[in-house]
Amino acid sequence: MQEELIKEIVKKVMDTIGKSNTIPIEVSARHVHLSKEHIEKLFGRDYNMSKKKDLSQPGQFQYEERVMLIGPKGILRGVAILGPAREKTQVEISKTDAVVLGINPPVRESGNLEGSEKIYIATEKAVVEAMESVIIAKRHIHMTPEDAKKFGVEDKQLVSVKVKSDRPVVFEDVLVRVNKEYKLSMHIDFDEANASGYKEGVVGEIIFF
């Protein structure tokens, strides 16, 4: 009887080890997703953007070109542009960036721009006013359907993640985003990275209260 109990306990421990809830964490710096219309206005008609590098998420990349963000109180220079072009321009910044610019963008999931902040985006050639475009990106996890099954979560679910650094914190309300094209990764901004003692290689663990 005791031997069977020991076997059952060992099995449960091994199952737990085999289902690691750790995920890689990446820091998402301030950046802009431009619409085709705004690319033409900022860089010129028929301008071909120059690809700099691929990003961790399949199909996403960074351009060589940069822009300025102009707010009521300040300017952020050298802001990265990510591709491919989107139907509507989206600007993702941190709360600290927002204070510098003098605006108050909402914390939102990517693509949810209704009622968000406006900003002026500039290059040496032109300036555009991007209405309802600025958000503070809600911290989130990209994962495939297979990952979701492994972790026991669903698309749009909110989970808590413990950052396993030398300054560990638990981030609540982390949005799970599931798509077969995604690569497993949690994205946080620089404010969150600094608060959690982030450095390259740090991972998070999904926890349930």
Rank of each mutant, 00 (worst) to 15 (best):
M1R: 14
E3M: 13
E4I: 11
E4C: 00
I6E: 12
I6M: 06
E8D: 13
I9Y: 09
V10L: 11
K11W: 07
K12H: 10
V13Y: 13
V13C: 08
D15L: 12
T16P: 00
K19M: 13
N21I: 03
T22C: 13
A29P: 11
H31C: 04
V32W: 00
H33D: 00
H33K: 02
L34Y: 01
S35D: 06
E37W: 02
H38Q: 10
I39A: 00
K41C: 03
K41D: 04
L42I: 00
F43S: 04
D46I: 01
Y47E: 04
Y47S: 02
N48S: 11
N48F: 04
M49C: 07
K51D: 03
K51P: 08
K52Y: 15
D54E: 15
D54F: 04
L55Y: 01
S56R: 12
Q57T: 01
P58G: 07
Q60E: 15
Q62K: 14
Q62I: 11
E64P: 09
E65D: 02
V67C: 04
G71Q: 03
P72F: 04
P72K: 12
K73I: 07
I75M: 10
R77S: 09
V79F: 07
I81C: 00
G83Y: 03
A85K: 01
A85S: 10
T89L: 03
T89R: 08
Q90P: 08
Q90V: 08
Q90D: 04
V91W: 02
V91H: 04
D97P: 06
V99I: 13
L101N: 09
G102V: 08
N104E: 12
N104K: 15
P106L: 10
R108A: 10
E109S: 14
S110Q: 01
S110C: 06
G115P: 08
E117P: 09
E117V: 08
K118M: 15
I121V: 11
I121P: 01
T123I: 05
T123Q: 02
E124R: 12
K125L: 13
V127P: 00
V127C: 06
V128A: 08
A130Y: 05
M131V: 13
I135M: 05
I136T: 06
R139G: 07
H140K: 09
I141R: 02
P145F: 06
D147H: 12
A148M: 05
F151M: 06
G152V: 11
K156Y: 11
K156D: 13
Q157V: 07
L158T: 10
L158E: 15
L158W: 06
P168Y: 01
V169H: 04
F171K: 07
E172Y: 05
L175Q: 08
V176W: 02
R177C: 05
V178L: 09
N179Q: 05
E181D: 14
E181N: 14
Y182F: 15
Y182K: 10
K183R: 14
L184W: 04
M186K: 01
I188S: 05
F190A: 12
F190Y: 14
N194S: 08
A195E: 15
S196E: 03
K199S: 14
G201E: 09
G201T: 05
E205A: 11
I206N: 02
I206D: 07
F209D: 15
F209R: 15
